[in-house]
């Protein structure tokens, strides 16, 4: 079982720059929480504070209700996997994986037995004798994951561990991380700026923007119905003022967020197509409806029939009312 992690009013400054401002977050035990946000939002700082690599200027870090704010990393039961594998270049994969056990004073025999178990779980037994230089990016990241998992952590912190890998490898490892989390039941905090990753992995989604936690909750609820304008911006939703919303048939007294994939594009109507773009496995169409500009996600099956200048109508299927900011 994993541990519950709680941050209480955590702030962190680096010189004049505030990396985190008054962040409070409770991560349920044995869940996978994804922390999503743009570059420089404070995601990595949050993870490093949980790991014990940075001390918050204000606030507390609780693990299973115990205040560990001033405790060093090795007593927290939390292990971190970094964006780059950070393997010790002078040690083989086996030595790298056993490193933490060696530091804990575990006997050699026991360490080797635990290493064997974990490499079987990650299917990397064939890599054990290789040096980091001889590993591919994906293999190195698997070894880094094994090095963390072999310690049997109650909390695993992952700082964009797949961002340096190519697409297919990223998808493969994503599935593996999810499988391991379910199998071992540990608490995972996973930092990313990739929404696909966030949606595929997260039980919970925390959105950080400008050093503040702007949204937290069940991953799909947050994604479909953000209540904060900054969260909606991070997620790439259309943000409309009440007047603009009215132009497309949405009546609200406050700004609303409309996810691009929850707008139906229909032939003919009062809007005009201003841009058509193809993305991987879906298309994006920008339309202007009077003074309102909207982004709509469409399937590949219809994108070929849409051209800039076409007239179109829109039907909003889901929206959420936003609190400011």
């Amino acid at each position: 079982m994993g541990y519950e992690v709680e941050l209480v009013n955590v702030s962190k400054r680096f010189g004049g720059f505030t990396a985190l401002r008054n962040v409070s977050l409770k991560v349920p035990a044995s869940s996978l929480t994804v922390v999503l946000g743009p570059s420089g939002a404070g995601k990595t700082t949050l993870l490093r504070i949980v790991a014990g690599l940075e001390r918050p200027d204000e606030g507390k870090v609780l693990i299973e209700g115990v205040d560990v704010t001033d405790e060093p990393p090795w007593v927290r039961g939390a292990v971190m996997v970094f964006q780059r594998p950070a393997l010790f270049p002078h040690m083989s994969a086996a030595e790298n994986i056993a490193f933490g056990l060696e530091a804990m004073g575990v006997s050699k025999d026991e360490a080797m037995a635990r290493v064997r178990d974990i490499v079987d779980l990650l299917r990397i037994r064939h890599l054990l004798s290789k040096l980091p230089d001889e590993l591919s990016g994906g293999e190195a990241q698997r070894v880094a994951l094994a090095r963390a998992l072999v310690l049997g952590p109650r909390i695993l912190l992952l700082d964009e561990p797949l961002s340096n890998l190519d697409l297919s490898l990223r998808e493969e490892l994503r599935a593996e991380i999810r499988r391991i989390q379910r199998e071992l039941g540990m608490t995972m905090l996973y930092v990313t700026h990739d929404q696909d990753e966030a949606l595929e992995l997260g039980d919970y989604l925390a959105i950080i923007y400008g050093g503040e936690l702007v949204e937290w909750g069940d991953a799909m609820s947050v994604y479909e119905s953000p209540s904060s304008m900054r969260a909606a911006r991070v997620l790439g939703h259309n943000i409309l003022s009440p007047d603009c919303a009215r132009e497309i048939g949405v009546s609200a007294n406050a700004p609303v967020a409309v996810p691009p994939h929850r707008i139906l594009l229909i032939e003919g109507g009062g809007c005009r197509v201003t841009r058509v773009a193809r993305r991987r496995s879906y298309g994006v169409v920008d339309v202007a409806c009077g003074g309102t500009r909207l982004r709509v996600a469409v399937g590949y099956d219809i994108i070929d029939s849409i051209k800039v200048g076409d007239r179109a109508g829109v039907e909003v299927r889901r929206y959420s009312v936003l609190k400011r900011p």
Partner: peptide, 8 residues
């Protein structure tokens, strides 16, 4: 950092 979180 990796060494520290691993307990070294």
């Amino acid at each position: 950092d990796a060494a520290r979180v691993l307990g070294a």
